[in-house]
């Protein structure tokens, strides 16, 4: 018989993963104040990510990017009925404790902020609040899940308005899942060792042909077509960071991306929602970016 504490912890893990499942087929939007949060909610966002500067501005302005002021997060919590997420620096478990204290619905341990620990991610099993973490491939995703993440997002390259890295990471993950599923069972331990993931989770992927948690796409999605592309590549939903509030008409773009994610397989609808949307955010060429400028390489 499981003890009461064990049952409670197991239930919490389940509820945290379930909340991510409820967000499937939806768009999570970066917002920097209560007014933007309301625009996002009215446009049909399933959740908002509260942060002080969108990734494009963090990139431009430089400096250390940290967890947002709890006051600003609380104002957003009051302004909308959808879940509110917020970011903490990689490894900064005290920022996570603070967000838990203000009852944030989801914590993003994010490479978009400046890492606080260059060796260790947060032990997310110590928290009741669910975590979402970025990943570039299957090994990274499974390491984060083993640390307690309840949801994964591909990293892409945040703040660029360039979808190429998000595509690369999603394709890598899908390819590796297919590979694992095709392996004879005796090869799984070596595969787990090679990608640096726990064997138990690799076995789960082999059996279920899927991650044990929901996987969204993120990092560079700027248009309805980008969002639908990520969905057709197998994402469960999308995060849009700078793409909305750095465009010429955020409200219309937000609505269009929500519709594009719901009807991602219907080109006629995608054409309709893309029609006359105004200027997308200015993009950045990722290929010519120096290694130091790349956020996705933060974390391991």
């Amino acid at each position: 018989m499981a003890s009461k504490e064990e049952t409670k912890a197991a239930n919490r893990k389940l509820l945290n993963r379930n909340l991510a499942q409820m967000l499937k087929g939806g768009v999570i939007m970066d917002v920097t104040n209560a007014e933007q949060a309301q625009i996002a909610e009215q446009a049909g966002a399933v959740a908002v990510m509260a942060l002080e500067r969108v990734p494009a501005d963090i990139r431009k302005e430089g400096g250390v990017a940290r967890m947002s002021d709890p006051k600003m997060i609380s104002e957003i919590q009051k302004a909308v009925s959808i879940p509110v997420m917020a970011k903490v620096r990689i490894g900064h478990f005290v920022e996570a404790q603070i967000l838990e204290a203000i009852k944030i619905d989801y914590i993003d341990e994010s490479e978009v902020l400046t890492p606080a620990d260059d060796a260790y991610h947060i032990d997310k099993t110590k928290f009741e609040t669910p975590f979402v973490c970025g990943a570039r491939d299957l090994g990274e995703a499974l390491r984060r899940i083993s640390e307690g993440a309840s949801m994964i997002r591909t990293k892409g390259e945040a703040g660029t308005g360039n979808v190429v890295e998000a595509v690369k990471h999603m394709r890598k993950m899908r390819t590796q899942i297919a590979e694992v599923a095709a392996l004879p069972s005796e090869q799984l331990a070596t595969y787990a060792k090679d990608i640096g993931a726990p064997l138990e989770l690799v076995r789960y992927v082999a059996k279920n042909k899927a991650l044990p948690v929901v996987n969204f796409a993120a990092g560079g999605i700027a248009t309805p077509a980008d969002a639908a592309l990520m969905m057709q590549l197998g994402a469960d939903g999308v995060f849009v960071g700078s793409g909305i509030f750095k465009s010429s008409d955020p409200k219309r773009r937000a609505e269009a991306i929500v519709k594009a994610v719901a009807y991602y397989g219907d080109p006629a609808i995608l054409a309709g929602v893309s029609y006359g949307l105004g200027a997308a955010m200015t993009g950045v060429d990722v290929e010519n970016m120096s290694e130091a400028e790349r956020l996705a390489k933060r974390g391991w």
Partner: peptide, 14 residues
Amino acid sequence: GGESTTLRRLMEEF
């Protein structure tokens, strides 16, 4: 289950 504001908006729009 899902977000009712999202479901509602899409149901009406489409």
